[in-house]
């Protein structure tokens, strides 16, 4: 059938492959060396132990994983999950209406609102959280006002508790909830809502039966972007919680920077990786797109 096969010279094949190689090899090399290898290494050392001078001893043991079930640690996991969950919930309650308002605005107002949502990030999170201490502290703005008004005699303890940590988390992570929801609402086909109204759905019913299911992928994406970091943001609990609230992240950081028990810190990190894997798996199983997590 074929009269003569097309001559594809080696030179030509190389020439055709060159653009692909130049474009894709840098990222491949980079991500393998700096993501795949390090994570594999973490997994490896999580099965190791340390000697007296804190050096890693490469001898297989599961002792770090046994230690993970220490009762104090278990209560820290519980605390950590509770704080992450609360932060996530509050972010949804605030972020969803805000994203809706933003998506419903004129294009110019939209970009303006977006710019002012991201603007605070250019000032360091730590400083901004520190600003909250001046507001919430026992001599801070809120207590002063309340005392001036005679509503309280003793200053309220607003800092150094779970409430303050959750507030700090919401403060730092709120935009990561708003953005994915906003993107989904923008793409929402308006005629579906009109069809729902047309078919007699009242606003509340329409919201719960049509809008919310259609935008749930955004909520899910936002929840992942809030919940997972909230497990690890040890600086928020340091600043807002003082020593009262310990997150998994605090324990990990301490193993690496103070206790110098890296293998145990690695084992703790494996827990976080597992939680991440489970959540991301659930997200993609329900039709979530991975790109939506990163494209902002």
């Amino acid at each position: 059938m074929a009269s003569r096969s097309a001559p594809t010279s080696l030179r030509k094949r190389i020439r055709r492959k060159t653009p692909l190689l130049t474009m894709v090899s840098p990222v491949t090399v980079w991500m393998v060396i700096l993501i795949a290898v390090p994570l594999a290494y973490v997994l490896l050392i999580s099965f190791c132990s340390t000697d007296e001078s804190h050096h890693i001893v490469f001898a297989f043991s599961v002792q770090n994983y046994v230690k993970l079930f220490d009762p104090t640690l278990l209560s820290i996991y519980g605390n950590s999950l509770l704080i992450a969950g609360l932060s996530c919930l509050i972010s949804i309650l605030v972020g969803y209406p805000f994203a809706t308002i933003m998506a419903n605005s004129s294009p110019f107002k939209r970009t303006l609102m977006m710019a002012f949502l991201m603007l605070p990030f250019w000032t360091n999170s730590l400083i901004r959280l520190y600003g909250w201490r001046s507001i919430l502290g026992s001599n801070g703005f809120i207590n002063s006002v309340l005392q001036e008004l005679g509503l309280i005699t003793q200053p309220l303890e607003l800092l150094y508790n779970h409430f303050a940590v959750v507030l700090g988390m919401v403060y730092v992570l709120l935009p990561f909830m708003v953005l994915p929801i906003y993107t989904v609402i923008l793409k929402l086909d308006h005629s579906l809502l009109e069809a729902a109204s047309d078919l007699g759905a009242r606003p509340a019913r329409r919201f719960f039966k049509v809008t919310l299911p259609l935008t749930s992928s955004g909520i899910f994406a936002g929840s992942i972007m809030v919940f997972i970091p909230a497990l690890g943001y040890f600086f928020v609990s340091n600043l807002m919680g003082g020593g009262t609230t310990q997150l998994i992240g605090n324990v990990i950081a301490r193993q690496f920077k103070e206790a110098f028990n890296w293998p145990f810190g690695a084992a703790l990190s494996i827990i976080l990786i597992l939680i991440t894997l489970i959540l991301v798996r659930a997200y993609t199983k329900t039709g979530g797109k991975m790109d939506d997590l990163g494209a902002m």
């Binding site: 390090p38 290494y41 050392i45 997972i228 943001y233 690496f256 810190g265 976080l272 990786i273």
Partner: peptide
């Protein structure tokens, strides 16, 4: 998606 603290300790290691 991974918590920054995990990435941080992985790179440090």
């Amino acid at each position: 998606v991974i918590p920054e603290v995990v990435l941080g300790i992985a790179l440090l290691s």
